[in-house]
Design a protein around this nucleic acid. Sequence first.
DNA 1: GTTGATTCCGTAGCTGACTACGGGAGTAAC
DNA 2: GTTACTCCCGTAGTCAGCTACGGAATCAAC
Lengths: 151, 151
Amino acid sequence: MSKKQRSMTIGTLAKAAGMGVETIRYYQRRGLVAEPEKPYGSIRHYDDQALGRLHFIRTAQWLGFSLDEIAELLTLQDGTHCNEARVLGEQKLTSVRQKIRSLQGIEKALDGLVQACSAQRMNVECPLIASLQHGVVQYSETETSGRSNRG
Amino acid sequence: MSKKQRSMTIGTLAKAAGMGVETIRYYQRRGLVAEPEKPYGSIRHYDDQALGRLHFIRTAQWLGFSLDEIAELLTLQDGTHCNEARVLGEQKLTSVRQKIRSLQGIEKALDGLVQACSAQRMNVECPLIASLQHGVVQYSETETSGRSNRG
DNA sequence: GTTGATTCCGTAGCTGACTACGGGAGTAAC
DNA sequence: GTTACTCCCGTAGTCAGCTACGGAATCAAC
């Protein structure tokens, strides 16, 4: 059960984790990964636990968690806060499903417009442009792309 | 067929379009909407065409177009470039469908984890946290959320 | 004719997640 | 023992799409 305990420099660690050195240093500044002690006048060394932490972050990011949320997840890391973790997961799941619904609305609208464009032959007006101009597209106010997608 | 040609100040226009004055001025700087002539020592006035332009931008944004892409769409505005517009629409449609697929993968993974958390009763380890730690979640490398979603 | 809101305009700040730069120190290869 | 890479560290820049600030001019109401 004991993984080999490599001792890596930050560059090696970055390569192993598939990310840049600067990214790791950025996570350190954000407090997401620890900065190991620096031997007197030497260079820091990282072990597989550090690598595991980076995988944790990557996977959580993929699941849609922000770095702030990941920091929160990491405080629950001892595994004894399953309820809290589950709540965070459920919230994320809700927002993911919301995004999917929004995107499906967009897909439908866009598909209709593209198909109308393909069908159009001799008409002067382009259906896609026309619908943007005249507001034919009806969208539900559940934003996904475009403005204020940083909330 | 003639819409009433209101003459609006930028504030009124902003209200009508449901956006802030600063946003409109930002679009002007980006060249997305024109800045009307300013009467000698007076204030600029906007008509319904300007409002239409803002609706165009909003709707295109909702469809997933960036402001740069919208600028491109606006050059096709005369309606005679249906092919070009359709190609842009198809590209966007492809990326929207890609995003949906990614999100569905995420939804599935997250749903599994949340359900495992709900089912878990006396076990010490939280399934969500554990899977982040040990990399149980397998994700396809079609990124949607998280890192480098600014490409 | 004064108060108070709005416009004008340039410039600067915000968010999130990086990414780059620069200069000095440490380390590895030959 | 020199060359060339890598590390360290702080600070600053990037991207997209806004949002805010500040000071002067203009306009609307009373």
